[in-house]
Design a protein around this nucleic acid. Structure first.
Lengths: 187, 187
DNA sequence: TCGTGCATTGACAGAACGGTCAATGTTTTT
DNA sequence: AAAAACATTGACCGTTCTGTCAATGCACGA
């Protein structure tokens, strides 16, 4: 039962950290919100930072799995899938629990590049870039790395602006921009 | 002298908050770093939040002034100026003190849209959007609002990724993407 | 039935948090 | 020179922070 308890804790902590910030949410309130006493939490994780890292690992897996699945459900060809990425973003933005990207927030609160939390955030984005890179290559882009980096720009920008203002047409704007960039690469 | 003392305080606080986060940096350390005692700070600002709002007001003015000036120095025609925006971003990213955008970080730490700090961040981005909008209109874009929103996506994305990874080619990638989007609008 | 081991707990420690206040300079006015 | 006005300070308040620990409950094997 210990493993599943731990997973439950991380899953609940994910939700709590998503609402409050990392520094803003203390361990006492976290204990209350997860229903796990502080001492029990510290049995599983040596420090708050370790717990945050576990939360980010779960979130990385969760988010990338979800995105790949949704994209594959929405479109078949690599070209269409690249566009579908922005449709999935739109779905995400419209969720009532949407509160920006946990990794962008993490890198905002842990600015030092050598900090493990910052490194975890960077790694997550690197993996997303890799995914777009693969799609761009399969779609036959002339410069797949460049296209992937540019689509990453649109994606991160969309996340930030959807959180700052209301979601509105942001995902659609990003999708249209992505289409234009793909056009330019002969897709 | 009171007015200038206050301005000094805000200017120094701006630097300090830029290094540490908003929640992460306490008032005691802030007092030490600014050289102004805590009591003196609270003479000028009722709460920490008020000080943060003053810092953000200064940063908004500072940043937008700097960007407009640099852009006008780098290019004359509206079309060239739109591209020059991304050159100025590149200059910013390469500064050793670059630590992402203060407003993105603010909206990360103050997620509630009704929170004054979040609102200040949203307003800053709205003003930047307005600036791009004006340039896009002057350049003769077919859909200037749309183009401005898309360039905002590239800009915010570039800031986030330049902070997460190293600056690298990010500003150049964003500039190339902007050129493609402007092409599409007949510019 | 009695231990043995493990999970859980409330209370606590020491430091740091935002914010306040009486006391002490330091000007400025008369 | 005396006094009124202002600026600044270190010490302090109650709370909350991360992290700890002795005590308790509880399952399970002998």
């Amino acid at each position: 039962m210990s493993a599943s308890k731990r997973e439950d804790l991380v899953r609940n902590a994910l939700k709590s950290f998503n609402r409050g910030g990392f520094h803003a949410l203390g361990m006492d309130r976290l204990a209350k919100e997860t229903g796990v006493s502080k001492t029990a939490i510290y049995k599983h994780f040596r420090t708050k930072e370790d717990l945050i890292l576990a939360v980010l690992r779960l979130r990385d897996e969760q988010f990338r799995n979800w995105m790949v699945r949704r994209v594959e459900a929405l479109a078949q060809s690599p070209r269409e899938q690249l566009l579908a990425v922005f449709d999935t973003l739109g779905e995400w933005f419209d969720e009532p629990e949407f509160r920006s990207c946990m990794f962008i927030k993490a890198s905002s609160e842990y600015q030092d590049h050598s900090h493990p939390v910052h490194a975890a955030a960077a790694e997550h984005k690197r993996l997303l870039n890799q995914y777009l890179n693969r799609l761009a290559g399969a779609a036959g882009a002339e410069a797949p790395e460049m296209l992937a980096r540019q689509l990453m720009l649109l994606m991160e920008g969309a996340i930030v602006l959807a959180h700052l203002h209301a979601p509105g047409t942001i995902a659609a704007d990003a999708r249209a921009a992505a289409a234009a960039l793909m056009d330019q690469q002969g897709l």
